[in-house]
Structures are given as structure tokens and as C-alpha cells.
């Protein structure tokens, strides 16, 4: 229709029937942009604004505090233990689920997703019920002088729980889509099982694996609720960065709280950037069915 109008020498008067009117269009774009700016971008911006509100020196001096450094070290340690643990599990779970058929598979997939439907606080609580003073093994652990709750092992366990599904839920649908033909070809040509995994499977899933590890790591370093329940908040010993942020904020030490928060916000931005890059550059090598959480 519009082409005829142009051929007639006038500007097109009609818009395609499948387009919204300019007014509706601008109103919807304006609403969406304003809503995202107020609810998403402003909270991110104020982290950096508050951290640098007293200048760069005040910001940098926060990182001379031994408690802050201990919190950073503990966060790195927890992620270094929790992420590989869930990475190995994700590989094992996706291999057994995608390459074999067995009864009860969908139940198993649902159970793997379970930690996402559990409140972080409840995730912390269940470990208190198992290992805490009044818990199942509490008396036995106290007798043998082993501390899990209010100590680093509890923090690692709670972090593993809340980040449990990230790698598996990315790899399972991806490997199911890819099937097992390539592995079967490699195996019938004489490759060993381990070599088949390394040279056939791993290259096929590497971007999906990286995607899952990225999200797993972001959550592991930023987890607050579950870790807060099992940590005991002992300064310099059992405080991760998010817990240290809470303590500093409650002491009205805004610059220090937001300076540490800048580390976590920076991690979130890097994660978002890499995630967007993977989705844009390697979309066909990521699973189409993985829901994002």
C-alpha cells in the first residue's frame, strides 16, 4: 500500500497493519525505558555513587582493612570449592541423563532443579538441622571437635546447595539436543570413553559449560541468605564479602559497605557482559531450552 503512495509522489500515509500506532509505540517504549531506569539502573548507579562519594582515597582505604581482605579471601575460597564441585556434578549428571535412557529421568531433572525453589534462608536452615548444635549430627560433631556450622565448611556446603543446578541445567538440555551420534562414532572407531569425552563431547559443550560456570560463580560469590544463616558472622573468619557489606552498612559505614559492594556489582556487570556475549556470539552452542535464573 505504502509503495503505491510513494509512486504517486506523496509520502506514505498508511502504516502496515501489523505495526502499532506511533503514539502507542512511543508510550510503550517510554514506559519500558523509564521503568527499567528507575528499578534497575538507579540501584546499580547508586552503588558506584556512594562508594566514591568521599573520593577515591576513601574508597581505596577500605581495602586496607584486614577484615575486608579476609572477607575477599574467604569469598574466593568458597567459590573455588563450590564451583568446581558443581561443575563435576553438572558433567556427570548431564552425561548420564543425555547419553542414556532410564526410567525416572524427568523426576531426576526436577530434583536437580529443586534448590532453585528453596528459599536461601531455608537452604541455610537445613544444614543447621543436620550439623548444628541441636542438629542430627550435632552431638557427635561436638564430641569430635569438628565445626561445620558457624565455620567455613558450612559456608561452602550452603553455597554448593544454592548454586547446585546452574551447570547441570545448562548442560542437560544442550547435550540432549546434541544427541549421542558423534560419541558413538568415536567409540566405534576405537577411541576410549575418556578420550571421546575430551575430544568429542567437551568441544561441543564448551560454551554452554562456560555459561553455566559463569552464572554459578556469580551466585556463589554473591550468596547472602543461605551463607548468613550458617556463618555466625565472625569477623575476619567467617564473613564473606556480602556478609561484610551487611555489617559495615549496619554500622553506618556507608563508604566501606558500598566500596565492597562495588566489587560484587563489578562481578555482576562482568557476568552480564560475558553472558550477553555468549548468547550473541555462540547462541547455537548454548541450549535453547535452558531457563534463565
Amino acid at each position: 500500500m505504502s509503495e503505491i503512495a510513494i509512486a504517486g509522489g506523496r509520502r506514505a500515509k498508511y502504516r502496515p497493519v501489523t505495526e502499532d500506532s506511533p503514539l502507542a509505540r512511543y508510550a510503550l517504549i517510554a514506559t519500558a525505558v523509564l521503568f527499567l531506569a528507575l528499578f534497575l539502573l538507579a540501584p546499580l548507579a547508586i552503588v558506584f555513587f556512594e562508594a566514591f562519594s568521599k573520593g577515591l582515597d576513601a574508597f581505596l582505604s577500605v581495602f586496607h582493612d584486614p577484615d575486608a581482605l579476609a572477607a575477599i579471601r574467604l569469598t574466593l575460597l568458597v567459590a573455588a570449592l563450590a564451583v568446581p564441585a558443581n561443575l563435576v556434578f553438572g558433567l556427570a549428571a548431564s552425561w548420564s541423563i543425555a547419553k542414556f535412557s532410564f526410567p525416572g529421568k524427568s523426576v531426576l531433572i526436577t530434583l536437580i532443579d529443586l534448590p532453585f525453589s528453596v528459599s536461601p534462608v531455608v537452604a541455610g536452615l537445613v544444614y543447621v538441622l543436620v550439623f548444628g548444635g541441636q542438629g542430627l549430627f550435632g552431638a557427635w560433631l561436638a564430641e569430635h571437635g569438628v565445626r561445620i556450622i558457624f565455620a567455613v565448611p558450612g559456608i561452602v556446603l550452603a553455597t554448593i546447595f544454592v548454586t547446585f543446578p546452574f551447570v547441570a541445567r545448562e548442560l542437560i538440555p544442550l547435550m540432549q539436543e546434541q544427541g549421542k551420534v558423534e560419541e558413538e562414532a568415536a567409540l566405534t572407531l576405537g577411541a576410549s570413553g575418556f578420550r571421546t569425552f575430551l575430544t568429542v563431547t567437551l568441544p561441543n559443550i564448551k560454551w554452554g559449560l562456560l555459561y553455566g560456570v559463569l552464572l554459578c560463580n556469580a551466585r556463589a560469590m554473591g550468596e547472602f541468605g543461605a551463607v548468613s544463616v550458617v556463618s555466625g558472622h565472625i569477623r575476619g573468619l567467617t564473613n564473606t564479602i556480602p556478609l561484610q557489606v551487611e555489617i559495615l552498612y549496619n554500622e553506618y559505614n556507608n563508604v566501606a559497605a558500598f566500596a565492597l559492594a562495588v566489587l560484587l556489582a563489578g562481578l555482576a556487570l562482568v557476568t552480564l557482559g560475558l553472558k550477553t556475549f555468549l548468547e550473541w556470539r555462540h547462541a547455537d552452542e548454548l541450549s535453547g531450552r535452558a531457563r534463565r535464573h
Partner: peptide, 23 residues
């Protein structure tokens, strides 16, 4: 903006908490 929609998934909840409280 599309990439930023995932911010609440990526931003640790404690950071979201103190920045919303400050705002």
C-alpha cells in the same frame, strides 16, 4: 537495556538491598 534485564539475577541480593535502601 535487554542485557540489563538480567541484572537482578546477577547482582548479589545484599548489594541490591543496600542500594535500594540508599535510594
Amino acid at each position: 537495556l535487554d542485557a540489563f534485564v538480567d541484572l537482578p539475577f546477577a547482582l548479589p541480593t545484599a548489594v541490591a538491598g543496600i542500594s535500594l535502601a540508599a535510594l
